[in-house]
């Protein structure tokens, strides 16, 4: 997501020359990109809400066994995976601090580790799918298990894509102490993906 009409920074001067739009009045302390990401996350939370509603109806209202008879959820492996994802939030923070302080090495290393941790998470999850012993089509419990974890996995994938862009740009030296929203905004999203996983893990595996 990128604000466009009033392109930030360097182009402002060019605008004046060929009669671009007047600079918009900034009527809130919130920056548009942050606000946009925040609202996007709200609607994402609601999308998870719809899936949790399905989970609620199947498990609580429908009183289905959880997990279904004869099936088992790999709570411990998923717990390790949770730790991996949570630690990626810290490396993300490290990268962002690097960007804020102009520490390019920290920025690059932080982004890179975050991506690696995210990829590890995804591959462990895929491995889990392969070995878990039940399929989405087996029963409604399986459907919502794959539904929720899959929805989250898709979000990890989107987060990773955003991080890839940020990493490419970091290695090309696009970010500076003043201008690093391209790291901050994906960072917010990444933290959201992590927090969401904690909720998913707790409801699906632990409870």
């Amino acid at each position: 997501m990128e604000s466009a009409s009033i392109a930030p920074g360097g182009h402002a001067a060019e605008h004046a020359e060929h009669h671009g739009p007047p600079a918009a009045n900034q009527s809130s302390r919130l920056e548009s990109q942050f606000l946009g990401m925040l609202l996007f996350i709200i609607s994402e939370v609601m999308l998870f809400g719809a899936f949790f509603a399905a989970y609620f109806f199947i498990r609580v209202v429908g009183e289905a066994d959880w997990p279904a008879k004869g099936e088992e959820l790999p709570v411990a492996v998923a717990g390790v995976n949770t730790a991996i994802l949570i630690s990626s939030s810290f490396t993300m923070h490290w990268a962002l601090e690097g960007a804020r302080n102009g520490n390019r090495r920290a920025l690059r290393a932080g982004l890179f580790t975050t991506m690696m941790l995210g990829l590890t998470f995804l591959s462990i999850q895929i491995n889990e799918y392969v070995n878990i012993g039940f399929a989405p089509a087996d029963n409604a419990q399986g459907s919502i298990f794959y539904g929720l974890t899959g929805l989250h996995g898709a979000h990890v994938f989107v987060g990773l894509t955003l991080l890839t862009f940020a990493t490419i740009r970091a290695f090309r030296g696009h970010f500076s102490i003043k201008e690093h929203r391209g790291v901050e905004v994906p960072g917010i999203y990444w933290h959201f993906v992590d927090v969401m996983w904690i909720v998913v893990y707790t409801t699906i595996y632990v409870l």
């Binding site: 719809a50 509603a53 399905a54 109806f57 199947i58 209202v61 429908g62 289905a64 279904a68 989405p136 089509a137 087996d138 029963n139 409604a140 419990q141 399986g142 459907s143 919502i144 794959y146 539904g147």
Partner: peptide, 18 residues
């Protein structure tokens, strides 16, 4: 999948709520 398939623990009314 079986979100709405009652035979496999799904819930048909869940659709309407959502």
């Amino acid at each position: 999948t079986n979100f709405f398939n009652v035979g496999a623990n799904g819930d048909a009314l869940m659709y309407q709520h959502v």
